[in-house]
Design a protein around this nucleic acid. Structure first.
Lengths: 144, 144
DNA sequence: CATTATTGGTTACTTTTGTAACTAACAACG
DNA sequence: CGTTGTTAGTTACAAAAGTAACCAATAATG
């Protein structure tokens, strides 16, 4: 006897969120991958530093909710690309403050434009009100 | 001179979608991981078979938008767990139809309950109307 | 202050994913 | 029919992510 359920994946929020996240992320990926050989985590770290200014790796972990090993790897990758600089804090030598180099800032500026263009294009099909509603919803879901 | 931009990640849709998707998926993961040692892709394959009945790996790839190698691996994992059965089609021996075993069906039934419970809990903070709006939005974004 | 705990960060090792090349079966075309 | 192309699916190898153990610096405690 084959038991039939009425459960549909297309109503299951985690599934829908993943599909939507995947679709948009894949589409946006080339923006940083092709030109700068960056990985998603690197992009995120760059954006946190670009937006919030200098901060420590730990702060990035907390704000962006990325595991410290991922951040650690992204930081050294960005350092190798000379987009970011570390500076050990004399008052607590465990901390190192991270900040973008000049070239990091200019890459950030370019990528910001790409991101804004992408987001605008993505949202053309929605009203401004819908878009804001969505953002509010996602922020609540993600408990950001 | 530190150039300040007004770009905020918290308004960038791909970022928000990923944060929300990650948050919910991580929370839901134990449901299939702890008890059945399943991976996310395995869960998805199981759910496609559970919901749509017997189908081929290719169909799962297309519907669920999962790469064929991932599906291939998930299928053999589920097969090893005796949750799924393959059957070669005589009219075209390249195809193999997949279907859940009895035990696969009962695992599916249990997991459906978990999923429904999880989704209900997740959505308590939202009105039914909001939830539906969200789903509609995500389906459009994901072009499902 | 010596010992233990905690914290920021890295590294080694394992698991999972992505990419590309491959096999086997069938289809299409000359 | 034989060659070439396509399709479903697997496998081998490389890249990335997760986990846990680790190191060095500081904080907390007896």
């Amino acid at each position: 006897m084959t038991k039939t359920t009425n459960f549909d994946l297309r109503g299951f929020m985690p599934y829908l969120l993943n599909q939507a996240a995947d679709a948009t992320s894949r589409e946006f990926e080339p923006s940083y991958k092709v030109r700068y050989g960056m990985l998603r985590t690197e992009w995120r770290v760059l954006f946190h530093l670009g937006h919030y200014g200098r901060m420590t790796a730990k702060e990035i972990c907390d704000r962006a909710r990325i595991h410290k090993t991922k951040v650690s790897r992204a930081v050294s990758a960005l350092e190798h690309k000379r987009l970011l600089r570390r500076k050990e804090q004399p008052e607590d030598r465990r901390h190192e403050t991270l900040s973008l180099t000049t070239s990091g800032q200019s890459v950030f500026a370019t990528l910001v434009e790409d991101a804004q263009r992408f987001d605008a294009a993505l949202m053309t099909e929605f009203t401004e009100q819908e878009a804001n509603q969505m953002r509010a919803f996602l922020i609540r879901i993600a408990k950001l």
